[in-house]
């Protein structure tokens, strides 16, 4: 097990280097010259050239990249082109907000998704099942920005029970977290349902029935633990989608998190900021996946042994 964890940790290093590589070069393809943006409108050619020289933008790309990479490993993500603050500091201010949002969202994804899946699976093809699955289908199909706006309109504007935007209290978390978690919950619900229905056909469920156990105990004790094994993987994957979703949701609800920071930085061609933001986002994703893998391995020891 320890071997496995170590191996998995080592495997993440090339992934992270790959991410910096992709982010760095994609940003080069984006039209617009950061030096021009930084110098402001109507700046002279000399000024722009000077800025370029100062930022090292005149050097060949690969040298720029390697310099960036070595700095990253030293913990230096550069300074923002916009306000000359160290990128790391900017990120560390916003990171907790995004993590908080992601945490509540994934809780909603898991709890809501699994509950819906179980309710559906207990009586397959019943009215409850069909309705729950219909809602889940809606959850997958609806775009989150529209869904977020609808929630905002209904709960904040009409009913006035929840704050419209911002990030001050736990009440502020509810709408963005629901918006962000809903799509994942729908996918988890469908996955949980089909996984339980699959497990219910297994021989050991028949054994449990032959023992005289109640159907409720059979589902919760015998079926669920086995059924959740594939669901764990899906939850891990959903986390990635969720991180991507923060960009939209943070913008809609005016939350000053990592996602919104990246969007602003892209708009400003604030290259070090974008790189730093994406790097951290992928770090979170890689870490979560590491946990999912270890958790999965732990849940399913048999895989290794057989």
């Amino acid at each position: 097990m320890l071997m496995f964890i170590l191996r998995r940790v080592f495997q993440t290093i090339p992934v992270i280097i790959g991410v910096t590589f992709v982010v760095f070069f994609i940003m080069q393809l984006v039209p617009g010259d950061p030096a021009v943006l930084l110098a402001g409108e109507g700046a002279s050619k000399e000024t722009i050239e000077a800025i370029r020289e100062q930022l090292g933008l005149n050097q060949p790309l690969y040298i720029q990249y390697f310099e960036y990479l070595t700095n990253v490993f030293r913990g230096d993500l550069g300074v923002s082109l916009k306000n000359s603050q160290p990128v790391l500091d900017e990120i560390l201010v916003r990171l907790p907000i995004t993590i908080e949002l992601a945490f509540f969202s994934i809780i909603i994804t898991i709890v809501l998704g699994m509950a819906a899946g179980i309710i559906s699976a207990v009586k397959p093809y019943s009215l409850t099942d069909v309705s729950v699955m219909l809602v889940a289908l809606l959850g997958i199909s609806l775009p989150s920005f529209w869904f977020g706006l609808m929630l905002m309109y209904f709960f904040s504007v009409k009913l006035q029970v929840l704050p419209v935007a911002g990030w001050d209290s736990l009440l502020h978390v509810i709408l963005p977290a629901v918006t962000l978690g809903a799509g994942g919950a729908a996918i988890v619900a469908r996955m949980t349902r089909s996984s339980i229905l699959e497990v219910i056909r297994q021989d050991y469920i028949r054994t449990a029935r032959a023992k005289g156990l109640r159907e409720r105990i059979i589902i919760y004790k015998h079926a669920l633990r086995n059924a959740l094994i594939p669901v764990i993987t899906v939850v891990g994957l959903q986390f990635g989608a969720l991180l991507g979703g923060t960009v939209l949701v943070e913008s809609i609800f005016a939350i000053n998190g990592l996602g919104r920071m990246i969007v602003d930085a892209i708009r400003m061609r604030d290259l070090p900021m974008v790189q730093g933001g994406v790097l951290f986002a992928s770090l979170i994703f890689v870490t979560v996946n590491l946990f999912v893998d270890v958790f999965y391995r732990f849940f399913n020891k048999r895989i290794e042994l057989n």
Partner: peptide, 18 residues
């Protein structure tokens, strides 16, 4: 079931909860 009439099955590999 399991009390007055019990049953054992063919596949011991799959008939126990893993």
């Amino acid at each position: 079931r399991g009390n007055e009439i019990s049953m054992i099955f063919q596949e011991p590999m799959t008939s126990l909860n893993p």
